[in-house]
Nucleic acid binder design. Structure first.
Lengths: 242, 242
DNA sequence: CGGTTGTTTGACGCCCTTCAACGAGCGTGG
DNA sequence: CCACGCTCGTTGAAGGGCGTCAAACAACCG
């Protein structure tokens, strides 16, 4: 019993670009099924060549790379609506691993059908490229904060970004955001040690700008955080949904 | 007097994926002209919405973002064959600035024609998406080094990567690579200060692994550098040429 | 010749890493 | 029931990698 693209609640979020009825019908045909994966399991491995592509329907995960020294760099956090596996679909090899942080249910597409996108449905192919461009943009931002911002600014940046994305997906209730990730995950995303990340979060907590416990995050002073991060509080980029 | 795509020497490099004669003809029609830009000049500004797209034919440049504090993060170094302006072409706004480091000559495409790619030439549209996926892959690598590697490993990584790309483009003569960038550029790419980057380069020089002067870079111990960087010495990813 | 840009080196200090320890929550098995 | 192990968050102390400040040198140019 899978969700029809027609009735998919994700499609109605403001974050995602409108799709024509024709496009929706086409995606429905393209959809091979749904996959439920448990928390902590890995969906794709770096270097693998998966025959399937996914878009996250429910749940959250993360993309990461592992270096030779054993260090882990978290590339980004995966929210519902994110498309997963494009690198394998296009280049034949994933550049990072993907793992589920909570239980996730994913829309499954067959990679073999991927090519027909470009031949038969140019709007969808355009959307795919658009998506890749958005990811590149976001990765550029992440690179800039990891490279240039101090720990305090970097943590504030990550939390603000997280909040904006969650807000765009209507995941915020009474100012409380589901936050399934560990401080280690955040540390690995920002390139800081766990200890220092923890102490930096402590500073923001002492200033009563955030509270984060029991898998729930609250930002009590969004403007203050944005000032510390050095970013504008603009809504996230509109993006296509696959 | 512009270069015909037919005779473009870039197309013959191993780095770039083969194109059918049909594709070459189509790209030729798509090409609006050539642009020569002087060293130090800005080609695209962050936030701008350029009506034109480019691929670098000759010369080198760099992509960068500027933060509110005035810091600069270099996103990557631009080599001949790189496609420039995709973000503006797809999302309507550049996420970073682009500037010429040496004099550059660029192939100019009209953005308005961009859409016809997807409608009339699905192979080219596919190549474009492929290109975006490659960039995402490379950015992920960069993020991992900036986030996780020490200064010595990061500098070695950057030099090895630079060497491999230059080699794939036949820019190496007697082990000497043209290196038009300043140490400040490298520092801003890796997220280290100029002083510390300089001292790190000094260490590699003292070990007689590199020499870099007068705009020329030589790597005397590629394997040693790769070991310090913690990377495999694999050839760069094949990529499409626009 | 002065002004500018880029490289190099030394001194000093701090942000961040590492090491270490402790507590809370939570399953598992005695 | 409680002991036990495991994960995760928290805090303190010590040390080092890296940033900042400063100055000098070389190359280039008007």
């Amino acid at each position: 019993m899978t969700t029809d693209c027609e009735n998919c609640s994700l499609r109605r979020k403001d974050l995602f670009a409108q799709m024509s009825a024709d496009e929706v019908r086409y995606m429905q045909r393209f959809k091979a099924g749904e996959l439920v994966i448990d928390a902590g399991k890995t969906l794709l491995m770096e270097g693998s060549n998966s025959p399937q592509l996914f878009t996250a329907l429910r749940g959250m995960g993360l993309r990461y790379k592992t270096l030779e020294g054993g260090q882990r760099q978290v590339i980004n956090f995966i929210f519902p609506g994110d498309f997963i596996g494009m690198q394998a679909g296009l280049m034949g090899e994933m550049g990072h691993s993907v793992e589920a942080t909570t239980q996730m249910t994913l829309c499954v597409f067959d990679r073999a059908e991927f090519w027909t996108f470009f031949r038969d449905h140019p709007e969808r192919a355009f959307a795919l490229t658009w998506l890749a461009a958005v990811e590149e943009h976001l990765l550029g931002d992440a690179l800039a904060t990891v490279g240039q911002r101090t720990a305090l600014a970097a943590v504030a940046w990550a939390l603000v970004r997280f909040h904006m994305r969650a807000t765009a997906l209507d995941m915020v209730q009474d100012g409380a955001i589901p936050m399934p990730y560990s401080q280690q995950d955040l540390a690995d995303a920002l390139g800081f040690s766990l200890v220092h990340t923890n102490k930096t979060l402590g500073k923001l907590r002492d200033r009563q700008m955030i509270s984060w416990h029991d898998g729930t995050l609250q930002l009590h002073d969004l403007k203050g955080l944005a000032r510390i991060a050095g970013v504008e509080l603009s809504p996230p980029l509109e993006r296509p949904l696959m």
